[in-house]
Nucleic acid binder design. Structure first.
Lengths: 267, 267
DNA sequence: TTGCTCCTCACGTCACGTGAGGTGGC
DNA sequence: TTGCTCCTCACGTCACGTGAGGTGGC
């Protein structure tokens, strides 16, 4: 008897347009039973009545708030207090998600900064961490030369995640190996010996804190220790002839692992 | 010749644990070619070398920034400028997403507020929009009575999205129908006539701005216009006997659409 | 022998998108 | 008759999760 018919019954396309969703979306909601039209036309078309549209709007609202389609029906029928609790839970989740995204944007900022500047420390901090002979301008020239290599990418991405303290550890471990190398030379350790090879590997591991350093890369870096005066001097200040000796140690270590130093390629 | 072997080769489980992802994730990345191990052990196990781990870390980084697995390989191999541009694009997207989520939390706040307070307008605005006889305390008692009904949910959810101006339109359209009803009664329009039915439907449409109002609900609301002195008086002030006449008009309109007024249920 | 890690299929998930092939009212 | 909207399958998407059934080193 209570038929409650009215003539503002609409078809699926109209309903979809009114809600700003796709027809397929309404088909889907109908199929899984989240929000079905209360009737069909003679031709089998879905017939959405105002009450159906109201339900669709509510589904849309909760979906926008991040609820899954599975939990929405229960929420629509739930009492006010359950709905409140759920909304408050969702609010907390959203706030947490916002926090996460803000962390990510800050992460991107650090990535971008690290890409241009290399080390994300103030000049004063850089001097303190890497020693007085470190030149902060080095980063800019390094990016000029290697900015497009995978190693610079790796280096800057790691740099983005490093604090001053972590840099201190990195610098310290390199300093420690360098001292150990100087001591070994003084003690007459021979390149190619087990002890020398062990030190070479320790040195490579320390370098790998900057970017993953293969044996071949290690060899090429050691060559620069000899060829470039600034590098050579900083080694030889510690121990006369150290620069050349380190190169020999690293070459021998590479050879022992079947990497021929003379034919080493950067990649 | 340049074998570059080393013994810190790890198996998939170790790699996964180190990166904080699942083994299945690394399998997936291998299958689709995003990041494969550079070799296998004799037993067919995936063998991840330091270079592979470095790549995995970079994939993880970009994935966290929201890149799809499809675009990541190109990014890893791209030059510094392409990578920068992409990072800046992602940053902009993240900022926009944060904005969106903030809008959503604000939306939840409005929903929660609307659920407790009904209309989200200051008492002064409420008086201005709904007229002097409107009592702001009505919302609280309404929530007491109907807070758990689907109609209150619908009403408060719509309310959350309404500005003072939109409320003004809603209130105006109800006032307009009410005036039209008063005029019609004065003009001798009979309940059940085409004109009266048309006005009843206009009234129902206006009510539907608060929540979707079925013919049955309409009938029950009309009964309250007669039974509750406050409602009755506000109608009769406009035109003597209007309250009862409106009830008759609405009952007749319902009956014309095969809803029997005497057996109308709220749902 | 028992545990543990590894392997390869292969189906399931979630909220639809996207045709494929066909019908019904203006 | 032509266009448009509608219908129901049914496979595709994305980044894996989750067993199923089996192998290999300690």
């Amino acid at each position: 008897v209570n038929a409650d018919t009215s003539d503002d019954v609409v078809t699926v396309g109209t309903a979809a347009r009114r809600l700003g969703v796709s027809v397929r979306t309404l088909h889907h909601w109908d199929n899984i039973g989240v929000a079905s039209p209360s009737g069909r036309t003679a031709g089998g078309y879905r017939a959405y009545r105002p009450g159906d549209i109201a339900r669709l709007r509510r589904v849309l609202l909760f979906r926008e708030l991040g609820m899954t389609l599975e939990e929405i029906p229960a929420l629509l029928d739930a009492g006010a207090d359950v709905r409140r609790a759920e909304l408050e839970r969702r609010r907390a989740e959203l706030v947490e998600k916002i926090h996460h995204l803000e962390t990510l944007t800050a992460g991107i900022d650090r990535l971008l900064a690290a890409d241009t500047e290399g080390v994300l420390l103030s000049p004063a901090e850089q001097a303190e961490v890497f020693g007085e002979q470190w030149d902060p301008a080095w980063s800019a020239s390094a990016r000029q030369q290697w900015g497009d290599t995978a190693q610079w990418a790796e280096y800057s991405e790691r740099s983005a995640g490093r604090t001053a303290n972590e840099w201190r550890e990195v610098a310290t471990s390199v300093d420690d190996v360098t001292s150990a190398l100087a001591t070994a030379k003084r003690d007459g350790v021979a390149p190619g010996s087990t002890e020398a090879n062990f030190l070479a590997e320790r040195h490579r591991a320390a370098m790998s804190e900057y970017f993953h350093c293969t044996l071949s890369m290690h060899v090429l870096i050691a060559h620069r220790y000899v060829d470039e005066p600034e590098f050579a001097e900083s080694f030889n200040r510690l121990e006369p002839g150290l620069s050349l000796w380190v190169k020999q140690v690293i070459d021998a270590n590479a050879l022992a692992q079947r990497v021929v130093p003379e034919s080493a390629q950067w990649h």
